[in-house]
């Protein structure tokens, strides 16, 4: 097994997998951090699900799956960004619509894969991730798209943070809250499209949510937390790649298990810390409870 690990970089496909995985992990860790802060996790999930028919359709048409992911995820992000905000009264209907759209997207993906007739096992790679067969050209495309996304994020980072933490105050201070939100959704679309190529459409939370939630549970300082989030995403991806190289089980299983484990440990630590903090606050006579 040690020999196996030692030879890991002897293969070009593993080098490509690590390169693509690293690019995607850093991007997902940073953009996912803002997504968790803005409570848009299910938007991220919806974008990933829509990516599945995109990738399957692109494969059917003979263009690379990556183009399908980016095309569909960005288009879906734009649609979501332009949808009117709904009030609580129509929540039940909204959830019925969301559920129907999600099922229809998955069904369409299934249709495209069965029309393709290539091999049905590729459906598992699209849904649950794969690290095989990533070409150098694909790594380069990922690098360009992710670098552009992170560049934009760097520009809008400060107003985005402001708008995410306190929308009203940011708006009053002259931050173009709506524009920043739309740009962020597009960045999220790009990050999801990148991440699903490693995690698969259904397991995108492993890179998008778990590292960010873990980092936010560990520290509240934004800069440090962002750095931590991308480092955790990177560590999870590298470990999962190494494990999937050694053992013949799908990378999605290792990714989600590592992500979930890291998240649980962070939650346990922050729960203990909260209890200690509440005890102190209780003695001081102030309430530290935050209702939701």
């Amino acid at each position: 097994m040690v020999g196996g690990i030692g030879q890991i970089f002897a293969y070009q496909f593993m080098i490509n997998a690590f390169a693509a995985g690293s690019i995607v992990a850093v991007t997902a860790g940073l953009i996912g951090w803002f997504m968790v802060l803005r409570r848009q996790s299910f938007t991220g999930h919806a974008l990933a699900v829509v990516g599945f028919p995109g990738a399957a359709g692109a494969t059917l048409l003979g263009i690379g799956a990556a183009w399908g992911y980016f095309g569909f995820c960005l288009a879906a992000a734009l649609v979501i960004a332009l949808l009117p905000r709904t009030t609580g009264q129509t929540r039940a209907e909204e959830s019925a619509v969301t559920g129907t759209v999600q099922a229809f997207a998955l069904a369409s993906g299934f249709l495209f894969v069965s029309l393709y007739r290539g091999n049905l096992t590729s459906i598992n790679a699209l849904l649950f991730g794969s690290f095989l067969g990533i070409s150098v050209a694909e790594v380069r495309t990922l690098l360009i798209i992710c670098a552009v996304s992170l560049g934009v994020l760097a520009v809008i980072g400060r107003p985005l943070l402001f708008a995410s933490v306190d929308r009203e105050v940011a708006s009053a201070a002259g931050v173009p809250v709506r524009a920043v939100g739309v740009i962020f959704l597009l960045l999220l679309g790009a990050a999801v499209a990148g991440a699903v190529q490693i995690t698969g459409a259904l397991l995108v939370f492993a890179l998008l949510v778990a590292p960010a939630a873990t980092a936010q549970a560990i520290t509240t300082r934004p800069g440090l937390s962002l750095l931590l989030s991308s480092l955790i995403a990177l560590a999870i991806t590298w470990s999962a790649l190494a494990l999937a190289y050694v053992w013949p089980y799908p990378i999605g299983f290792f990714l989600t298990t590592l992500a979930f484990g890291v998240y649980l440990v962070a939650r346990a630590i922050s729960a203990l810390r909260d209890r200690a903090g509440n005890a102190v606050r209780g003695r001081l006579g102030t309430s530290g409870a935050v209702g939701s």
Partner: peptide
């Protein structure tokens, strides 16, 4: 949603593992 999302992703990951 963060907790639900993490648990869900892991449950699916386990399913993939069993299938493998």
């Amino acid at each position: 949603d963060v907790i639900i999302g993490n648990v869900l992703a892991w449950v699916l990951g386990l399913g993939v593992f069993f299938l493998a």
